[in-house]
Simulated scan of single mutants.
Amino acid sequence: MPLSEVVAILQDLNEFVVSLDRLGSGQAFETADECTVGKFIADWDVTRRLAHARHVIDVALDAQLSEEENAEIDSLCEQGRFFGMGSADVTSTDRPT
C-alpha cells in the first residue's frame, strides 16, 4: 500500500474522529442537533471517503493474505454492529469503547 494512500486515509479518519467528537460535544451542550450531524456527513462526503478507505485496506489485505485468511476477516467484519438494524442500533448506554 503506497504511503501516500495510508497518509490520506489517516488524515480522513482523523478529521472524522475529531469532527464527530466535536459534534457529540455540541449535542451534549445543545449547540448541535441531528441536522448538524447529517449536514456534516453530507457536506464532508463522509460515506464515500470511508468507503474508499475500506476499499484501499481491503485491496491491500487481499494482496497480502491467503484466500482463507481474507475469508475469515470478511466473516468477522460481517459480525459487526450496524446502525439501523433494529435491536443492533447503538443507544446512549451501548456505545463502543
Rank of each mutant, 00 (worst) to 15 (best):
E5V: 01
Q11V: 09
W44P: 01
F16Q: 02
G86M: 04
G80N: 14
E34T: 03
F83W: 12
F29D: 00
D94M: 10
G84I: 03
A42M: 06
G86F: 07
P2A: 01
A32N: 09
D33P: 07
A60K: 10
A8S: 02
S66Q: 06
D33Q: 06
H52L: 08
V59Q: 15
L10R: 10
V6C: 13
S4F: 05
D62F: 00
D58E: 15
E30Q: 07
R81C: 00
D43G: 02
C35P: 06
D94A: 12
D12T: 04
V6D: 13
A88D: 12
I57G: 13
A53R: 02
D33H: 13
A42F: 08
A51D: 13
I73V: 14
G38F: 10
S87E: 12
R48H: 10
C35A: 12
D58C: 08
D89T: 05
V6H: 14
A88I: 00
A88L: 06
I73P: 15
V18N: 10
P96N: 09
C77T: 05
V90M: 11
A60M: 05
A32V: 02
S19T: 10
A63R: 14
E68A: 11
L65M: 11
A42P: 06
V37D: 08
V56R: 14
S92L: 07
E5G: 04
L20K: 05
A53L: 01
G84W: 06
L13R: 14
L20D: 03
K39V: 00
D45G: 02
T36D: 13
G86K: 11
Q64I: 03
D33F: 06
Q64S: 07
K39Y: 05
Q11H: 12
D21C: 06
L23T: 01
S75D: 08
T36N: 09
E15N: 13
A8F: 02
A28Y: 08
D74Y: 03
I9C: 09
V90R: 07
D33V: 06
T36A: 09
L3Q: 09
T47F: 13
M85P: 02
L13H: 07
S25A: 15
F83E: 13
V18I: 14
G84R: 04
E30V: 05
Q27S: 00
D58F: 15
I9G: 15
R95E: 05
E72Y: 09
V18R: 08
L10S: 07
E72K: 11
